[in-house]
């Protein structure tokens, strides 16, 4: 459908093949900027999720003990309740009248509300919150496979704590990290509810652009072309992650 078009004045699609939808995406800075913005948001989400998930997963594997099941459940909760509920919850938390701004105001720390919604900050918070479990789960299983005594062994040979992480733990947990990153990146790239609600219509991502075209403008062929571009990017990332996994396994 992405190579079809609608004649002027009608919404009935004309199935004569055309590349004009793709030309429009490539030729208009608006869509390219939107694509770059989406990629950037997904990358930032992946990096933040990895930063948060590494210590958390380590803690779950090594220190949580009998609370492990409980903590893993807590980490998983945002995933099982869908995208909408947590996002609406975050809106209440981050909004100008929300808990964070309300607390800061009542403590006298700020006069006017911080803008946490309607910009990339809000979207990033929402995306990291939503997709952190996708990073934690593969990491937990990767770290679980490390022998319990590698840390002690390395340190007995004179390695510092940071060196242990950099030279031993990170390389050995790389498959988990790569799998988690690919999952989080793809989930963030295609996420729709979170940028729509937390971006308050001011931050356009590729998914919200496709939604606007499909459900509001009713230009279905163009919306399909946007979706196809997203699909192509997902395929690229899938291939890259697969390649990286192989490389990590070999080294």
């Amino acid at each position: 459908m992405s190579i079809w078009s609608q004649p002027t004045g009608s919404l009935i699609v004309d199935p004569t093949p055309t590349i004009k939808n793709y030309a429009r995406i490539a030729g208009d800075g608006y869509y390219i900027r939107g694509l770059l913005r989406t990629l950037w948001l997904s990358l930032a989400t992946t990096a933040l999720a990895a930063l948060l998930a590494l210590p958390l997963s380590w803690w779950i594997v090594r220190r949580a003990g009998r609370f492990r099941g409980l903590i893993l459940t807590l980490v998983l909760i945002p995933m099982v309740c869908g995208a909408l509920l947590p996002t609406l919850g975050l809106m209440n938390l981050l909004g100008p009248l929300g808990v964070i701004n309300g607390t800061l105001k009542s403590l006298g720390l700020i006069d006017r509300s911080w803008k946490l919604l309607g910009n990339q900050t809000g979207i990033l918070i929402g995306l990291v919150h939503a997709f952190l479990p996708l990073m934690v789960l593969p990491l937990v299983s990767a770290l679980d496979r490390l022998p319990r005594d590698v840390e002690g062994a390395a340190m007995s040979l004179g390695a510092k704590r940071l060196q242990v992480w950099r030279r031993i733990i990170l390389p050995l947990s790389a498959p988990g990290l790569i799998a988690g990153s690919a999952l989080v990146f793809c989930a963030a790239l295609t996420s729709f509810v979170t940028p729509l609600l937390l971006g308050q219509g001011k931050v356009a991502t590729f998914a919200t652009m496709a939604y606007q075209q499909a459900s509001l403008v009713l230009d279905w062929p163009f919306a399909s072309a946007l979706a196809m571009v997203m699909l192509a990017i997902l395929a690229l990332i899938g291939t890259a992650a697969w390649g990286a996994q192989k490389w990590a396994a070999e080294t």
Binding site: T8, G9, D28, Y30, R33, G34, G201, K202, V203, A204, Q212, Q213, L216, V217, L218, D219, F222
Partner: peptide, 19 residues
């Protein structure tokens, strides 16, 4: 206005929403 829909949506996104 219906005929302008596609163009105006892009214009709105760019000129009004500053994207």
């Amino acid at each position: 206005l219906i005929e302008q829909r596609a163009d105006w949506t892009e214009r709105w996104n760019k000129d009004i929403m500053g994207q």
